[in-house]
Design a protein around this nucleic acid. Structure first.
Length: 652
RNA sequence: CGCGGGGUAGAGCAGUCCGGUAGCUCGUCGGGCUCAUAACCCGGAGGUCAUGUGGUUCAAAUCCCAUCCCCGCAACCA
């Protein structure tokens, strides 16, 4: 049954690097919504993709020694791969470097210019010459450039501007008349109070400071800045044409039902984008949902903190549906969620393995054991049946209601409420007791039927969230994925139907053991990320020759060497320095050498340093070593000299 | 006076808009069961809902006021 078109877009991912699990959350959320809408019978168009222009990409490509196009090709490929790893069912993966898109962006820009909404002026700001960047007063750090810390000076740059203020009252009215336009609601107030009410400034929509972008065709030293370029993807790819000869998809799907975006870019999607559409005289999207963020541990993911988690790594560890489940279920509707390995494993065990997996497993196992895996008539109703059946019939509607509000986590909860009820039903009806008495077999068959039918409902409803798992459940039931209409009545399974083989859906995880494994993996990863070899940078400071000559370097022979008591670092050397009197030197190198290795070696020492006490012992000089870092680990080797050199020989 | 979000059981959260028995999941303790992945089912303990024994009210987690604390606003960002 076709319930009409449904167009959902994600924000397009910026191709500056590999997306982490937080970036991936958005597309998984979008996927769950789209799959659910398809299940309900909507004709869904799900668009995602990449935003590939801009200064940053130009710079990164330069640094990597490749062209920007090569750079974005690589990253876009990686992003698409991760979207696929997450099993997302996008209908189209778009890229803003698509020539078709670039052509349309130029046409849109020209149209807005011709009708007077875009005008040429000057961008004034504080300019940092070495960084070639403009900054606002508020961005400065101590009045200096936040990038390089250098001086900034007021400067002007020619730029095109969009007349935002012209459309502001219309937008205000639209927001007021469409309370669902901006979700969650708290965000709406934020936008209205912070941006619309104080008055909109005209938006700078072109740049001359970099070239990796869509050129303004009538003024080629300008490139179209991100707003018009990136935002317009939502209409250009479905087939918008400036001349009104729109493509089929555009005619069918625009305006979009939902733009799903991160809460940080809400401003662009709820103010600039609607105004842009008004200027083009196009209908506005029905809803913009700014979803919360996924945090890791107690903060944002950050490469410098070393806590970045990537979706594909998690999938390797736990499987795609477990990761999808966590993302979809553990992130609240309007506030940020957190991801930790512990929490993830706890959810897998308690929800996926215990409640869902075990229910399917025990039911299918009993069916095979007691009825040879063949369904019979479910003709003997009994106590507890109606409660289970009623909940089955009520659940699809409840899930749909939550999904309409985009409350995905709550929708999943509804399904698990049903699964919990089914587990309880088993305890209430005690099939293993019924099985003991032949006269109860008809009732036993009914109980098993009710359970299997409940699982059929659950499989259908779970599919949008856990597509692989839903299919595996169906395989065990030996049925095709049930459609939405089949959930309007209890009794979809037929008598005489033969079940498939039972299979464990989610194995319980031994959390401490798995954690150990993960820590090992993380440590290896962290190590691999460190530079292979690090050398101390050379000193720029000069030392004059006379000062250098004052240092008295001598060859010394190790007569004895022992670890200093109560010190984990220090070794105590008794050295022959050629004077006839033993010289004692302490050196903090126990981490690198065992004392007995060094006895008899010829080393190099500076002997005219002032004596110094360490751990109560006097050290007269210093042994010289060569140091460097490997994979972040400090390495040290003593300077060992040819044993033919006599003790006390001076270096010069 | 920068802005915004938040403080509810050991953990994670809902409830706050629209006052009326403080709820869910996990964990924990006890019991039941044995079909099942030591799973499942039942019950208990655990909270002065950040503070002010503040205000409004018959009634406040919820509305008002004040105070304290945490988090983001630094791009590796959605």
């Amino acid at each position: 049954m076709n319930k009409g078109p449904y167009y959902l877009s994600t924000a397009i991912a910026y191709t500056s690097g590999k997306p982490h699990i937080g970036n991936t959350y958005e597309v998984v959320l979008a996927d769950a919504i789209c799959r659910f809408k398809r299940l309900e019978g909507y004709d869904v168009y799900f668009q995602t993709g990449t935003d590939e222009h801009g200064q940053k990409i130009q710079e990164k490509a330069e640094a990597a020694g490749i062209t920007p196009q090569q750079f974005v090709d690589n990253v876009a490929g990686e992003i698409k791969r991760i979207w696929d790893v997450m099993n997302t069912s996008y209908d189209r993966f778009i890229r803003t470097t698509d020539p078709m898109h670039e052509r349309k962006v130029q046409q849109i820009f020209k149209k807005l210019y011709d009708q007077g909404d875009i005008y040429k002026s000057e961008y004034e700001g504080l300019y940092c010459t070495p960084c070639e960047s403009f900054w606002t007063e508020s961005q400065l750090v101590d009045g200096k450039c936040p990038d390089c810390g250098g001086e900034v000076h007021p400067a002007k740059e020619e730029a095109y501007f969009f007349k935002m203020s012209k459309y502001a009252p219309r937008l205000m009215k639209h927001i007021e008349e469409h309370p669902d336009f901006i979700q969650p609601e708290a965000r709406k107030n934020e936008m209205v109070n912070n941006f619309l009410k104080p008055g909109l400034q005209d938006l700078c929509v072109s740049r001359t400071s970099f070239t990796w972008g869509v050129p303004v065709d009538f003024d080629p030293k300008h490139v179209v800045y991100v707003w018009i370029d990136a935002l317009s993807n939502y209409i250009t790819f479905p087939g918008y044409e400036v001349d009104g000869n729109h493509g089929e998809q555009y005619k069918k799907y625009w305006p979009a039902n939902v733009h799903l975006i991160g809460k940080d870019i809400l401003r662009f999607h709820t103010i600039y984008w609607p105004i842009l559409l008004m200027a083009l005289d196009l209908p506005l999207p029905k809803q913009v949902f700014g979803h919360p963020w996924l945090l890791v541990g107690d903060g944002k993911m950050s490469k410098s903190k070393g806590n970045v988690i990537y979706a594909d790594d998690l999938v390797d560890l736990f499987g795609v549906d477990a990761v999808r489940y966590y993302l979809l279920h553990e992130i609240p509707f309007a506030s940020d969620g957190t991801l930790t390995y512990d929490l993830l494993m706890e959810r897998i065990n308690s929800d996926l393995a215990n409640i869902l997996g075990n229910l399917v497993n025990r039911t299918v196992a009993m069916s095979h054991k007691y009825s040879g895996g063949v369904l019979s008539d479910h003709a003997v109703p009994g106590e507890f049946d109606s409660e289970l059946i009623d909940l089955c019939l009520a659940t699809p509607g409840r899930v749909a209601a939550k999904m309409d509000q985009l409350r995905v986590a709550d929708a999943i909860d509804e399904i698990f409420t049903l699964l919990r009820r089914a587990n309880k039903y088993i305890d209430e009806t005690t099939p293993w007791v019924l099985a003991k008495d032949e006269s109860n077999h008809a009732r036993l068959d009914t109980v098993l039927y009710n359970l299997l039918e409940t699982i059929r409902f659950a499989a259908a409803l779970l599919h949008p969230f856990l597509p692989d798992t839903a299919e595996r459940i169906c395989k065990q039931l030996n049925i095709a994925l049930p459609d939405w209409d089949s959930l309007s009545a209890f009794g979809g399974l037929e008598a005489g139907h033969r079940l498939g083989e039972g299979e464990i859906l989610f194995a319980r995880i031994d959390i401490p053991k798995k954690m150990e494994e993960i820590n090992k993996l993380l440590a290896e990863k962290a190590k691999a990320a460190l530079p292979a070899l690090e050398l101390e940078p050379q000193s720029g400071e000069k030392v004059d020759f006379d000062t250098f000559c004052k240092s008295d370097f001598r060859a010394v022979k190790v007569k004895a060497c022992e670890a200093v008591k109560k010190s984990d670092k220090l070794l105590r050397f008794t050295l022959d320095d050629g004077t006839g009197t033993d010289r004692q030197i302490l050196s903090g190198i126990h981490k690198f050498y065992e004392p007995e290795q060094l006895v008899g070696k010829t080393l190099l020492a500076i002997v005219n340093l002032p004596p110094r006490k360490m751990m109560g012992l006097e050290s007269c000089g210093m042994l010289l070593s060569a140091v460097h870092k490997e994979k972040g680990e400090e390495k040290l080797r003593l300077i060992m000299l040819d044993d033919a050199i006599p003790a006390g020989a001076k270096l010069c």
